[in-house]
Amino acid sequence: MNNDTMNNGVIIAGVNLLFNYAAGEAASRFLIALRDEKKIWGTRCPSCQRVLVPARSFCPRCFVDTTEWIEVGPTGTVSAFAPVFHLADPSGFGNPKGLSAALIRLDGADTALAHFIGETDAPQIGLRVVAVFAESRSGHILDIAYFKPA
């Protein structure tokens, strides 16, 4: 933590906090496939049959275990986007300039993945895109650097 200081009746305080979030078995398997194989996996709900991406251990709608792993993408379709230029980065996950936030429905998936699109001046809904994997991968959602026009 940093110094607490007093100024004109206002206290300025700061803190550094380290968190270590357990991914769990399903998300670990998803992230390891990104890292080691540059592959994107979803899981299918045996009840509603939806393929959930990122892979989930259970279907939040049907509340049953997912049973089947399905490879999806790396191509998909943009279903929403928003240019982000000077977004503060409270997440610490990085948000490189020139990228747009986007929801991408990967081929074979029934849900959209929240990620970035780049290498395009004219993002639009319906744009076909493909995953660009990071050179250095650590088992993290940004092992996919962004999606670019396919």
Partner: peptide
């Protein structure tokens, strides 16, 4: 068994508290 990952994350936060 799957290798189990942890996602680490350091947050630097600051606050500005009004007093009275």
């Amino acid at each position: 068994m799957t290798e189990l990952l942890r996602v680490s994350h350091t947050m630097t936060l600051s606050w500005r508290y009004g007093t009275s």
